[in-house]
Amino acid sequence: MAEIGETRRELALDCFLLAGKILMENGAETYRVEDTMIRMAISQKMTHSHCFVTPTGIMFSPTEEMATRFVRINDRQTDLERVALVNAVSRRLVAGEYTLQKAYEELQVIDQTNYKFHIWLQILAAAMASGCFLILLGGSWSDLPFAFVFGGTGFIIVETILIQTRVKFFAEFIGALAIGILALLAVYSGYGTDLDTIIIGSIMPLVPGLLITNAVRDLMAGHFVSGLSKGAEAFLTAFAIGAGIALVLSF
């Protein structure tokens, strides 16, 4: 009987850590990850558990007699659908609609499935966002095709380099550099009119908006370790984009 209880608690731990890992990998705030894990733990009668979440790893310490577990988080992306799905599973587990086994299976399915929109749809979205921002920031309608095409191109370049090298900083630098060169060519050839708005509109899809928001939210909630490291990531991204553009402008 004690044996069954032990495996059940191991399963519970696996379940919490998997939920935390998926949330952290896909762009949830730190306080949400901790809150979700603690709520799930309380629903499984582990009332004195503690967890410590950073952007690169999660530590979870259940009750006194069990060992602390750790899970490493290697790559982070933004996939808010997974965040919503894990949130739904944890709500159901806490409400008692799901058993632990069922919840763990659901989480594994979420971890394996690819929910992303098709890559061409994402590129189209990036291009559309660039075009919209060009007009919103006061650009002229004749520049619209340039922002549309360059925004999409920059997004393609960043995604391709990310798949090839996994170095985010480098990918964003090259993407911004390409956008800058293309915009400069468009204006020098006489077809584009305003270099500044074309560039600003086109780099908008690369701006680290999610990271900045999350960093500040984490800092305000008292999660200083993750707040500072996410802030550093956002700063590096912004710096990479700025350096790419600055390199073009210095010619």
């Binding site: 762009g27 659908e81 929109f117 994402q122 966002a129 908006g209």
Partner: peptide
């Protein structure tokens, strides 16, 4: 349109 496009890039639920 811009915010909706960012929704697609960040893959918010449909």
């Amino acid at each position: 349109l811009a915010a909706g496009s960012f929704g697609v890039i960040f893959n918010t639920p449909r």
